[in-house]
Write a protein that binds this DNA or RNA. Structure first.
Lengths: 221, 221
DNA sequence: CAATTTTTTTAGTCATGCCTAAATATCTAT
DNA sequence: ATAGATATTTAGGCATGACTAAAAAAATTG
């Protein structure tokens, strides 16, 4: 009876995430991997989403979000990111459980709740991971962002987001004193292995590997 | 896989509500009415709850909460009422949608979330309707409360809770300037029809009928 | 106290969302 | 171009939580 079940919402968000990374159509297997389900389950769900005109679906050739699906996904993303701001700014959560909790909160469907939450939070434009929060019309700001890996030596920037949200990665960053919003400058790049030496907050020297640098996005200043 | 599905939680809360009103065992039909489902669905669910040892269930003779079920229900009530405080104190909700939204929020199962929410709200002891919030061990304060109807003339008190949570009743109270926490004194009781004249906040004279007075609980001061 | 009414339970169905196993389509490499 | 590998879909099942209709137990009442 709801426009969208909570499961359908999760699929839609997964499809959005995958299709905004690479532009082409999204494969069944990619969705299954993202969602932690099996391909057969995905096939089932794609049928349902296609019937609700959220996706265009040609069998064996993957899916695209329709305009309607895109709007809906942005609405879910908006809720997710607003709740993340709440968890961090108000409840003082550390990284760990935030995405999971927000995954559940985002499924609540009460426009007034989200409107009041947005107001209460002061209409934030970015979530704690630096990802933009769509407004109620689905518009959001994009800011230039560079993988840390691609920053030249001496360039300064602000840590804007992480690509990998696993708990272990976030814990690692915590331990290294790397957090969203931290100012940093690249001191040296080691050509041999692609690792970097950073100065964070003008006070801490930090070494990160190429793998880590690839998962950190920086907004150049 | 979860200890309790969200549906089971709703049943448990309904059983708690019904059994804390009248002490005896709760009937299948009463639960069905409370939940807006059919008796057959309730019978199904009672079987499941009995297997999880949340209730003791003798066929055809209604149910009682077990110690475990009682604790669990109090945990749900705790979450429900904390979220209600959040909705009113922080998001500035008016009465209307609060119970529905809290019904959904209460099903989230993240102990840390509730702990942090509790802290953020300043460990409130009562929800916006004046109902006590159990602590993490299930203990809660009970305060003496009297139906407004039973207050003698000249007695002062604080509006503590309403028995009827329908939107129309709450709107009516709003219009009359009656709200939880308001100080009031009974000026006059009309024997003929049981209606009362109140002085609210030391500044407004308000007339209420016997029916309305029966649905307002006052904490004498 | 026996017949009728009410309440509760059982039996059978349906939709959702997941799964495994099998079938089928597409892709890749020789 | 076709065999083998890979990806996707179909088919059939299972659990949850609801429903209707029918059966059975309990309560009521004349």
């Amino acid at each position: 009876m709801p426009l969208l079940t909570s499961s359908e919402g999760k699929y839609l968000k997964a499809i959005y995430t995958l299709s905004s990374a690479g532009k082409e159509s999204v494969s069944t297997n990619a969705i299954a991997a993202q969602m932690g389900t099996k391909a057969a389950s995905v096939s089932d769900m794609l049928g349902k989403l296609a019937e609700k005109e959220m996706i265009s679906y040609r069998k064996y050739y993957g899916v695209h979000l329709t305009e309607k699906g895109h709007k809906t996904a942005l609405g879910i993303l908006r809720k997710h990111r607003l709740w993340e701001v709440f968890l961090v700014d108000k409840l003082r959560f550390q990284w760990e459980e935030i995405p999971q909790i927000a995954d559940e909160l985002e499924q609540l469907d009460h426009p007034l709740l989200i409107q009041k939450l947005d107001e209460y939070l002061g209409y934030p434009k970015f979530d704690p991971y630096g990802d933009p929060i769509p407004d109620e019309f689905g518009d959001f700001q994009t800011k230039a962002r560079v993988p840390l890996q691609d920053m030249p030596v001496d360039m300064t920037g602000k840590i804007a987001a992480v690509k990998d949200n696993t708990a272990s990665f976030l814990r690692y960053l915590d331990k290294m004193g790397i957090y969203i919003g931290a100012r940093m400058v690249v001191l040296e790049k080691v050509e041999f292995d692609g690792s970097l030496e950073l100065m964070v907050d003008n006070q801490r020297k930090v070494f990160v590997s190429r793998e880590v640098a690839a998962n950190i996005l920086v907004q150049p200043l």
